[in-house]
Design a protein around this nucleic acid. Structure first.
Length: 423
RNA sequence: GGAGGAAUGCCAGAGCGGUUUAAUGGAGCAGUCUUGAAAACUGUCGUAGGUAACACUACCGGGGGUUCGAAUCCCUCUUCCUCCGCCA
């Protein structure tokens, strides 16, 4: 959520920024500000009445001590009469706070000034690209065919065990998957990220704090016992929530965390050739990087994180491009996002393998992840995250781009992890 | 799964119905002293709402209740600890 004081202070700028994100109902900003004024009013009235109640109570205590029971009784009655007033006021306070919250939560984050205007993926700008396209043999095939040919993973088998979109990895195919995860984690920890193994299910509070709830519950699998648990759609959820309700000191920043986890996404409504093979599945592996930082340098860190992910892609020798997402294509919570796409040579298309975002204080405002600045004032951290990296599409790209007439070559950096250099 | 105990500020820890606007240590921060450090001493030291600044209000694991008044009493949920059972 955008902190309310920010909205109030820069109304016009906020309106302009939200327009860039194609937010439909700008008038909600006025409503929000009006309601907030009303909230203050009610709050003030309530506080005044409570002050009176407190004063009377103190006085009653004194009178009893002095043995003046009669006078005390009079005051007691007076205080009792105030009760309905406080009840009414706190009720209207509560309802107005709820209204404010319902409006507030609809605002997407304000895009950074460097974010281009635009509506769809067409309007994203390519910032840079790297690498060369492999020249494949005439009979080169997409990864799902390679998977059957070399028995690397099996989606039909997954359907039997669970349902569509739950791949079963086998043999060298499984080993390659594990090798990738291991390689990514090693790269990340070498860059100073602390490794976390998080729970794969989270509670409501966590899902809310990182923004999956209340709007995106359709994305998640929900385990419903007495209380709901949510299967994580990304390790970002548990990992970022580590710092929910925390106040850090300046020297704790930046906090750099990395986590490998399975991710579960319902992806309701997706179909067609975009979802073939590993392009889009319900359970997949991902290594995530998360940072909580001093707001002063969050944009510098966004660049660093992007460069870090690029470094990994370079080591794997995969051709990629970096896209700066336009206002219309970026996520609700992001202020600036780079997408990294690798070229999948047999499918002849770009596959998104990482998305690195600066959320500024949008997410930490919900999390209440804060730090003390030089003057000892408590302020919101900025949060960033990115995939480093999502496995399925990297896996697909490696199979496709490294296929040869007589097998699939394993990129050199992975050989220490796989123990073989060819499938 | 059963039986008990507990949850208080950054940490430790008192308070168990009315000068508690949460005692007292420790840590942290600022200062005095010192060549510097340590020790000692002095001050400061939660979060949020609110105000021009004060005032004021809320918060003692979460939610609800009793009362003029709740950290304190009651109900409920959660978490942790000890013991028993089961178990990779």
């Amino acid at each position: 959520m955008i902190p309310i004081h920010k909205i109030k202070q820069n109304q016009e700028a906020v309106i302009e920024a939200l327009t860039k994100k194609h937010f439909k109902d700008i008038s909600l900003i006025d409503t929000l500000i009006e309601k907030d004024e009303a909230r203050k009013n009610v709050q003030k009235k309530l506080d005044d009445v409570l002050f009176e109640v407190n004063s009377i109570s103190k006085e009653v205590g004194n009178l009893f001590k002095q043995g003046k029971a009669e006078e005390a009784e009079v005051l007691k009655n007076k205080s009792s009469e105030l009760k309905s007033t406080t009840e009414n006021l706190s009720q209207s306070l509560k309802s107005i706070e709820n209204e404010i919250h319902d409006i507030h939560i609809q605002f997407p984050n304000i895009p950074h000034e460097s974010v281009p205007k635009g509506k769809t993926a067409e309007d994203n700008t390519t910032v840079r690209s790297w690498g060369t396209r492999p020249i494949l043999a005439k009979n080169a095939v997409p990864h799902w065919d390679l998977a059957s040919k070399y028995d690397l993973f099996d989606l039909d088998l997954g359907s039997k065990l669970t349902g569509a979109g739950f791949p079963v990895f086998k043999g060298k195919g499984a080993k390659l998957q594990r090798a990738l995860a291991q390689f990514f984690l090693d790269e990340n920890t070498a860059a100073g990220y602390q490794e976390i193994i998080p729970p794969l299910m989270v509670n409501e509070a966590s899902a809310y704090a990182t923004g999956q709830l209340p709007d995106k519950e359709g994305q998640m699998y929900i385990i419903n016992e007495e209380r709901p648990f949510y299967m994580i759609p990304t390790a970002e959820v548990p990992v970022t929530n580590i710092y929910r309700d925390k106040v850090l000191s300046l020297q704790d920043l930046p906090v750099k965390l990395t986590a490998f986890s399975q991710c579960f996404r319902r992806e309701a409504g997706s179909y067609g050739k975009d979802v073939r093979g590993l392009n889009r599945v319900h359970q997949f592996d991902k290594v995530e990087i998360v940072q909580l930082v001093n707001p002063e340098n969050s944009y510098q860190i966004l660049e660093e994180m992007t460069a870090h992910v690029e470094g990994i892609l370079q080591k794997l020798g995969l051709e990629y491009r970096v896209l700066l997402l336009c206002g219309g294509d970026m996520s609700f919570a992001s202020a600036k996002t780079y997408d990294l796409e690798v070229y999948s040579a047999a499918q002849e298309k770009w596959l998104e393998v990482s998305s690195v975002s600066n959320f500024e204080d949008f997410q930490t405002n919900r999390l209440k992840a804060r730090y003390k600045d030089e003057e000892g004032k408590t302020k919101l951290c900025h949060s960033l995250n990115g995939s480093a990296l999502a496995l399925p599409r990297i896996y697909a790209a490696i199979l496709e781009n490294y296929q040869t007439e007589d097998g699939i070559k394993i990129p050199d950096v992975l050989v220490p992890y796989t123990g073989f250099n060819k499938i």
